[in-house]
């Protein structure tokens, strides 16, 4: 417990000292998968809070909002990123394991968690005239996370910057491929299930007559 707390505090250190931070997470046992998963959960939680509690002026709350949707899409994004990144870095001599990738990705999300939370509060205080500041915070959180992802990848895989950026681009392509594959599998399952259901239906009809 105390260890987890220490690691969570260290995740804050990582956001401002990414190069040393990510190195320490991987090699100096300053981080763990458990903490990474806590951070992931926090991200999803903040995302849900943001979807529900953002002020009227800045939010577009759908009447039929379903938090499972947020959970699923966040998890999908996270794991497809990790998987695609792992696939590509394996091929391009990356030094990170799947566990390392999950860790650096989750640790990179810390600025997003903090800033999104701040934004939810501010969205209930700000008026339209101050929208610029609100939007700026949003942009800042994304840029920061992107920067952390790049440095995280760089440190974890022992890549050069060019290679990191190339792998990053291909990782995004990989994510799209994964999404397509999942859709494909689903459509196929649907067809198969539909077929089985039809067969059962037919059989029941025949037997009952």
């Amino acid at each position: 417990m105390k260890q987890t707390w220490k690691e969570l505090k260290y995740s804050l250190y990582v956001t401002v000292h990414p190069f040393k931070g990510f190195w320490d997470i991987k090699y100096e046992k300053e981080g763990s998968l458990k903490t990474a998963m806590i951070l992931l959960a926090a991200t999803i939680l903040v995302q849900i809070i943001s979807n529900l509690k953002t002020g009227y002026l800045f939010g577009w709350v759908s009447v039929n909002y379903n938090f499972l949707r947020t959970v699923a899409s966040s998890l999908f994004l996270f794991f497809s990123w990790c998987l695609a990144n792992w696939c590509l870095t394996c091929l391009s001599d990356g030094k990170g394991t799947f566990k390392d990738i999950m860790m650096f990705t989750a640790y990179s999300l810390v600025p997003y968690i903090i800033l999104q939370f701040v934004m939810v509060i501010l969205s209930n205080i700000f008026i339209l005239r101050e929208q610029t500041f609100y939007d700026m915070l949003g942009t800042l959180s994304f840029v920061w996370v992107a920067f952390l992802l790049v440095t995280g990848m760089l440190t974890t895989h022992h890549f050069t910057l060019t290679r990191t950026l190339v792998v990053l681009a291909f990782t995004i392509v990989g994510m799209i491929v994964i999404a397509l594959l999942i859709i494909l599998v689903f459509t196929m399952f649907q067809q198969v299930l539909g077929f089985v259901a039809a067969v059962i239906d037919e059989a029941v009809q025949r037997v009952s007559y």
Partner: peptide, 13 residues
């Protein structure tokens, strides 16, 4: 199931 929730829940028409 989660993935299904992701893909099945469509935008409000």
């Amino acid at each position: 199931g989660l993935a299904a929730a992701l893909f099945a829940s469509s935008c409000p028409k």
